[in-house]
């Protein structure tokens, strides 16, 4: 485990425009270690783009995204991301995790052991030698979680990780996320699902039309949303959660 943390993550007046459209509009926020953070909002609110700006997959067109640790190598190594649809390589489940370790320059002798540990942590060790692409949707997403977690990142980004999964696979994924959370990994997850936000998260960043409208502790957010947009969103979403 690293001596110093790359958190907090600081966004200062971050904006993202593409083709004349504003996707993210003037977002400033500090995210520290500790409670799991949920980016909550409707489809198209800009959650995924905001997450990609945080993770460094996109560069902001205005403002700045900064980690407390300025070393780009450590920044990259101590954060990982799981996407809505996992992209797995055409090799075994174990080899997929080992590949991530190889890219991170983990010495070869350690890779297999670490990869097996990561598979164990998501309950996939018995499928280690199965080709990754023939696993079920839920298993593929758990493999993606194992791959992201193999390096024990300090921050784990999750972009709608269960959006294309059935309820039982969703529960499995949430259980894994909660275990990673309990093990001390900072969870930052985007979702539009209120039930999931409540089960997994401790605090909410509510995103609406590319703006950060509200930040609140989870219970407080649901009991007394401060903004009209959040109140409408909770009211509109609840019947389906």
């Amino acid at each position: 485990m690293p001596a110093s943390s790359i958190l907090p993550l600081s966004l200062r007046r971050v904006g993202f425009r593409i083709d004349g459209r504003t996707i993210i509009d003037d977002v400033s926020v500090d995210i520290g270690a500790g409670p799991s953070t949920i980016l909550l909002g409707a489809n198209g609110a800009g959650k995924s783009v905001l997450m990609r700006l945080m993770h460094g997959l996109l560069a902001p067109t205005s403002g700045s995204v900064a980690w407390s640790d300025r070393d780009p190598e450590r920044q990259r190594r101590l954060q990982a991301m799981v996407f809505q649809r996992p992209v797995l390589l055409r090799r075994s489940a174990l080899a997929n995790v080992a590949y991530a370790l190889k890219v991170a320059r983990v010495p070869r002798p350690e890779r297999e052991r670490l990869a097996a540990e990561a598979l164990e942590s998501v309950g996939l060790l018995h499928l280690a030698n199965r080709p990754a692409r023939v696993l079920s949707g839920g298993e593929q997403q758990r493999l993606a979680l194992a791959r992201a977690w193999a390096l024990h990142p300090e921050v784990l980004f999750l972009d709608e990780p269960t959006a294309s999964l059935d309820p039982s696979a969703t529960r499995e994924i949430e259980r894994v996320i909660q275990a990673f959370d309990a093990a001390g990994t900072k969870i930052i997850m985007a979702t539009h699902n209120l039930g999931q936000a409540r089960r997994v998260g401790d605090e909410v960043l509510f995103i609406h039309h590319g703006r950060l409208v509200e930040r609140a502790a989870m219970d407080h957010f649901f009991a007394q949303p401060a903004s009209a947009e959040a109140a409408a969103f909770i009211k509109g979403e609840l019947p389906w959660t």
């Binding site: 990609r52 993770h55 997959l57 990259r76 190594r77 990982a80 991301m81 996407f83 996992p86 992209v87 390589l89 055409r90 090799r91 590949y99 991530a100 890219v103 991170a104 791959r147």
Partner: peptide, 25 residues
């Protein structure tokens, strides 16, 4: 188009990423 974000997220880029991709397909 399918792999780019994932590979960049893992820290693979440039020649190494291209090699991974060509081998995978």
């Amino acid at each position: 188009a399918e792999y780019e974000e994932q590979l960049r997220s893992l820290g693979a880029s440039g020649f190494g990423a291209a090699l991974t991709l060509v081998w995978d397909i």
